[in-house]
Design a protein around this nucleic acid. Structure first.
Lengths: 211, 211
DNA sequence: CTTTTATGAATGAAGG
DNA sequence: CCTTCATTCATAAAAG
């Protein structure tokens, strides 16, 4: 994944050369370029760790209750019997093409309200083309409607949008339209790794490390 | 866990960087120990704000080293469809680095509830940096949350539990790499949580030893 | 080039 | 009904 920083760290740490040779090294220069390079790598390493930390913290605080529970024993027991390897029977109903076709046809007939009885009938009919239950039908219709609706609204909004060009990331004034914390993003965007002069007092990050 | 020790190792070697300290040449000594201590603090600071950079670096890599000039166009070039029809870009939307950064920032702000209006706003903002739709944002958040959770759970289980056959399927059990330095960052999460004490970044007061 | 991985998107299901 | 979660699929991107 991101082992680019891990690969080089130890190698980079072997540096006892450069700092001498300071034939005319001014006293103000505190770090050599090589050391800066090493530090850059270190920062990358720390950043990687911190990334994990943030991730973990966020998840823990978000759903603390779900941390170790795991509802894993759901429904896959009956299908995954003693075989221990791929059973191929899906834990989740997937409509066969024939079923799908029928469902689509019914859906397109405009019966926006699949009543209970209708569900029963449809399920009964579809069961001739494969395993199915009434709740499958019910869910399918629910999802189908909701998603077609969403699709429609999305298409509408995208219709008004015709900016299909100049998605360059040049600094437009819109870039700073955010609040103060956007400064962050701006700073770390790119020049940091290459310049890395240690005098930008980055006060604090928005990463909330509250325990 | 091992990563952490490696980093300490790097730190240690960095502290030895006064290569000429045996020769008694004063001006070649680049950093004092106190300075190094301060520097380590700064590294922590930078690391805490660099998580986004890590993510970004993964996507940018090469461009990053080019001092962040107008690297804008990168791979989102062929968005303009000649047909004049629905753009659809490619079959699949790919966030630009800037978009990704913004998304990550929002995601990390803890507002785990990207409501519909929020989605709209975010999409609107992100459209300043490239072609995007609301469903893109929606999907991104869905995926981000799901995968961070899964990653977290995975790491936690790998830490405490002995391998209890949690994998019946033919997933990707090739994670076994009990060798030295090349540990993927996915595994470093929970073990190091106990060892790490990342005090929140203190505002670097007198750390300006450059210039 | 082929293989692997990362990740955007699709969708069945649950909750409210 | 709507939103959200979990799983799966497809493909862009990276690795080899």
């Amino acid at each position: 994944m991101m082992e680019w920083e891990q690969q080089q760290q130890v190698n980079g740490s072997a540096q006892q050369d450069d700092c001498a040779h300071g034939n005319g090294v001014p006293y103000v220069k505190v770090m050599t370029d090589e050391q800066l390079e090493i530090l850059r790598k270190q920062i990358a390493i720390y950043a990687s760790i911190c990334d994990q930390l943030v991730e973990m913290h966020r998840t823990l605080t978000a759903q603390q209750d779900l941390a170790g529970v795991g509802l894993g024993n759901l429904y896959c027991d009956s299908l995954v019997s003693a075989a221990g390897h791929k059973i191929t029977a899906r834990q989740r109903w997937t409509p066969t093409p024939v079923q799908l076709q029928i469902l689509e046809r019914i859906f397109n007939q405009g019966n926006g309200t699949p009543s209970k009885q209708k569900i029963k009938d449809i399920a009964s009919e579809l069961s001739q083309h494969g395993q199915i239950s009434e709740s499958n039908v019910y869910n399918w219709f629910q999802n189908r409607r909701a998603r077609s609706k969403r699709k429609l609204q999305n298409a509408t909004s995208s219709n008004a949008e015709s900016e299909v060009e100049t998605e360059v990331e040049s600094r437009s004034p819109k870039d700073e339209k955010e609040n103060q914390e956007n400064i962050h993003s701006q700073q770390i965007e790119s020049p940091m790794m290459t310049n890395l002069s240690f005098h930008s007092p980055v006060s604090s990050s928005e990463l909330q490390f509250v325990g």
